[in-house]
Design a protein around this nucleic acid. Sequence first.
DNA 1: AGCGCCGATTGTAACGATACAGCAACGGTC
DNA 2: GACCGTTGCTGTATCGTTACAATCGGCGCT
Lengths: 357, 357
Amino acid sequence: MTQRPTLQSVAKAAGVSPMTVSNAFNRPDQCSAGTREKVLKIARELGYAGPDPAARSLRRGRTDTVGVLLTERLPYAFTDLGMVAFLHGLATALADAGQALLLLPAEGNAEHAHVRNALVDAFVLASLLPDDPAVADVIERRLPIVSWGEPRLPGVPRIGIDNARAAAKAARHLVGLGHRRFAVVTFGATADIDDEHTLAVRGVHRAMAERVDGFTRELRAAGVTDVAVLDATKNARAAGAQAVAAALENPEFTAVFAVTDVLALGVLDAAARAAVAVPAQLSVVGFDDVAAASSSVPPLTTVSQSLFEQGGLAARAVLDQLAGREPKARPIRSELVVRGSTSAVPESQARRTPRVR
Amino acid sequence: MTQRPTLQSVAKAAGVSPMTVSNAFNRPDQCSAGTREKVLKIARELGYAGPDPAARSLRRGRTDTVGVLLTERLPYAFTDLGMVAFLHGLATALADAGQALLLLPAEGNAEHAHVRNALVDAFVLASLLPDDPAVADVIERRLPIVSWGEPRLPGVPRIGIDNARAAAKAARHLVGLGHRRFAVVTFGATADIDDEHTLAVRGVHRAMAERVDGFTRELRAAGVTDVAVLDATKNARAAGAQAVAAALENPEFTAVFAVTDVLALGVLDAAARAAVAVPAQLSVVGFDDVAAASSSVPPLTTVSQSLFEQGGLAARAVLDQLAGREPKARPIRSELVVRGSTSAVPESQARRTPRVR
DNA sequence: AGCGCCGATTGTAACGATACAGCAACGGTC
DNA sequence: GACCGTTGCTGTATCGTTACAATCGGCGCT
């Protein structure tokens, strides 16, 4: 078996210096077309695979790669449509800047080494637990960091919306439609630590709590206190359906706010099953505005937080830091997108619950 | 500004050899607890971030990372639920083996360098065009390769189902239910090359053509030739709806086979809009069995090809090659999952189209 | 002819770790 | 007490590039 040829060996075979070979591969303009072609031809003949990226990275001191640390177990990340949208935006913006994206599981099983060995120039933390050991590992690497949602670390730019304020918009919308009796569907609120899935959930828990808070606070400001909180076991469509199924038998509310589109879609499923018409009998509002929200039946009214755009912003914050620029904090808009799952409170219901003055 | 400390400098400060520092970080068992702690303490004091991954990779000759090359423009990859499911399986299996996953756009804009510089030990090609220039770049790297779906390269293990045979199962199912007049919804069949999106599409085109072929061939074997082929502009829910919308005004068929779940969901949307009851008036079959297929209304009957599992198989094929083992080809099952979107042909329709004998 | 300049090319010294072989000290065994 | 296997540590060579400064022709200008 022959040794894998190196840049040196190509140089020798071509009768030029190693630098010329390097130039031929990396800087066509620094090199006459003639020698360049000659070098490339010899390289091909020797079966040279091109400059070794590891050696190049060592020498240049950078990898042109950004690592993104995903919640605990990778599975969860891909199951979550919101996360996928964020990654989509992140990957796109990074690709345009010539950076590749390395997916890192925030382990939970391996020997703790993934973050330590990651060939990256910077990290993006995507909805992690503040006390996840992987976060400590990342900090130890002393590379630029950007955090999305959680955790909030001093000196680390964070991309994320004001969950409470955004949820309040949903409340205003529903109150404006005349609703006075509500249910909120959240998840992970009552979760235990010993469940494996729960660990992944805890990282996003804070955001969910903020949404519930913002929603109920706004209701209270409008004089409404009739809010039932339903806790789903996890952020999944079926779990959302399950959470409201019982309550839909004999609904004590005319509107539901789900802290996640995925949950809201589950609520739609449950309503369909229970023959509760949406929005005629029940209004439903979600949160995130994932792609599936616009094609559900009926299309979901939801709080849009432009996850794709947030991925792009995270990318820019990373690139700013890599370029030595101060990452400038741009506010992230969130807005209510009114579609077909909400309407004015039904007449019969309105009579049963007189307006507050 | 101080220089970033190196392993050497830590060794000097601790009064030990560099190897001892290396051992302290990487091989706790090769090192007495005492010295280990001393070394780590000094490292912390100096602000040492741990062994440099680039240097380590150069020396060890591996990166513990697998690169996955995605269709043309990254955006498409994340929009495609099937692709996400595959990546999910791939990432999970690789993570369990201690490998990270590097996402590489098969560019289309950048200066051609992404693949060349990728810090990886192997590549996975995910539904690429056989003539994508990036494929040539990958081959040039002379690293282990696994291909998913397309392209088919000599000597490269390929993960993928037999699309024609799988689609035939859908045909058999529908014929068995008494259907005799069909529509097939596909995409990209008539696409032009000058559209940017189309380029991405062409890579999966072959698979789609195989599905259409397998479906119609099976029908013909059953003596059925009444098949309308509808071409969607792209693999998206809305496009699927649009493709059948006109035909649903006055349907000439009782069953629709969509080459993709995403398209099939669009067909469901269109049917709902046109007040065509599924499955009472129209049966719909999809392909892929993405997560959304089981929670649609009605739940979609579809050809399941366990994309998640295929990701795992791709990972195993990669790991086999990295370990010097011959990757063993395992057959990938595809099976029809009958859910709620198909039923026997409606009586009125059955009369209109007498059975072939 | 002499001068300065520019683009192409070269030589050498890192970049920061780990593999490998070797060595000293230490107990336990006969 | 000689022998031997472990354990814990050390020295050095090397992984394959690229940065940097220096060099070398050739060519247009004066």
